[in-house]
Design a protein around this nucleic acid. Sequence first.
DNA 1: ATCCCGAGGG
DNA 2: CCCTCTGGAT
Length: 218
Amino acid sequence: MNRTTACEVHRRLLEEYPIVDGQRHFLEFYNPYETLILTILSAQTTDRAVNAVRDALFARYPTPEALARAEPEEVEPLIRTIGFHRTKARHIVGAARKVVDEFGGEVPRTMEELLQLPGVGRKTANIVLSQAFDINVGIAVDTHVARLSKRLGFTGSKNPDIIERDLVALFPEEVWGDINYLLIRHGRAVCTAQNPKHDRCVVADLCRYYRELRDEGK
DNA sequence: ATCCCGAGGG
DNA sequence: CCCTCTGGAT
């Protein structure tokens, strides 16, 4: 895929899923603290499951200071339904404590600092930087981004590191955050893993996967 | 059965 | 490199 076509994909998806007030939030994030916690919780889980526990969690722990004072054992039952709840309870409490103790109660704004927080790896850090601060140091390749990148023809690889390299080379830096958001958004709604909805896809005519399906007479 | 915005530890 | 952590939706 060339840059011109990639740019057209970006334009059409942006029209389909408008970004209001610069908010690329498909979970209903409100601030850096909530973005950090919800992104940690989102690992290997659906946004629906995370949204289901969001209100109760932040009603009880509205700030990093409140969560830092909690014990993981008392946070666990609040997030029981999202999976990996024992590990994640430890992670978010540990992250809150580190934010309070070492970063003055503010969620850090650099990759290096974010990676020091428990439960935060490169993907989570990328997403927090992009969504909370509009700082785009790379492109977080989750399963949605990987699937759409392969189908549309942004990349030929299924290795996340190579996919990120291809995407970073294909798109100008100022739209990296957009691309992250838009591919995930489109992947959830239309370009699903099973039974993708080609008839509702605004980039079907640019899609390598769709073209191959038609060439095979399907 | 498979998948979901992975990270940490061996 | 591997394995474990975990529940809900489809």
